[in-house]
């Protein structure tokens, strides 16, 4: 069982035109930077991307958008990316906007082996159009399906060569859910260690869900909204 790869180029080389890929991260926090860079380099096209956000104009998924590598984007919030809004309003890009909790839970359902979920999010709105509605205990819920994806690209803080993953702070977000949901899950980590070096009590994603793992390089970890409390004047 060899899961380790040398780098993103090697780990993602069989992602072909038309693939459906999940990408972890919230905004630019916890995104698989190395894998995105590799896809930009190979120029693979007609991708369907499932991710909470679409990056910004010059980073994250925004880099794939700029090179017109996306056919469809499934996301909950895309407000940070003007190129995205332009491609959407001009019809170049197909977009499915999904409530954030629904997006997360549809990933979770896939990883838990459940075909669908019921959620109240979107009842009475255009999100409900064409969907089955069922009433439980006096409240309406929408039927939402688990996602099918070819690849899940996730970013973790630490991982071992068996694929066990540990995330850091709010960089966890969608990563563990997507890791569970990919037909093939590719994890990039800031620190790759030998089995036994991570405490089994602290594993967020058990290695059974992870097919490929590599230690990432040159993390930029860009901050989208740098907000600080000014130090008090002495």
């Amino acid at each position: 069982m060899k899961k380790t790869f040398n780098n993103a180029e090697e780990a993602t080389q069989d992602i072909k035109d038309g693939a459906v890929i999940m990408l972890g991260g919230f905004g630019l926090c916890g995104i698989p930077e190395n894998c995105i860079a590799a896809l930009v380099k190979t120029g693979v096209k007609e991708l369907t991307c499932i991710s909470n956000n679409a990056g910004v104009d010059d980073f994250g998924i925004g880099l794939l958008l700029k090179k017109h590598q996306l056919k469809k984007m499934i996301a909950s919030y895309v407000g940070e990316n003007s190129e995205f809004e332009r491609q959407l309003l001009s019809g170049e890009l197909e977009v499915e906007l999904v409530p954030q909790g629904t997006l997360a839970t549809r990933c979770m359902a896939t990883g838990y082996g459940m075909p669908a979920i019921y959620t109240p999010a979107g009842v009475g709105t255009e999100v409900a159009e064409g969907k089955e509605i069922r009433n439980f205990n006096g409240k309406d819920y929408l039927l939402e399906y688990a996602f099918n994806s070819d690849f899940a690209l996730v970013k973790a803080w630490k991982g071992d060569t068996d694929g066990n993953l540990l995330y850091r702070d709010t960089a966890r977000n969608f990563n563990p859910l997507m890791a569970m949901a990919g037909k093939i899950t590719i994890a990039e980590v800031e620190e790759l260690v030998a089995p036994g070096e991570l405490d089994p009590n602290n594993i967020h994603t058990p290695g059974i869900y992870v097919h490929r793992i590599f230690q990432g390089a040159n993390y930029e970890k860009r901050i989208e909204q740098r907000t600080v409390n000014k130090k008090k004047e002495a």
Binding site: L28, C29, W157, R168, A171
Partner: peptide, 18 residues
């Protein structure tokens, strides 16, 4: 919000602020 110099890219709120 953190003090200046203590921002952490892994620690943000839903508005993407540190």
């Amino acid at each position: 919000f953190p003090e200046e110099g203590k921002e952490d890219a892994d620690l943000i709120n839903a508005g993407k602020q540190t």
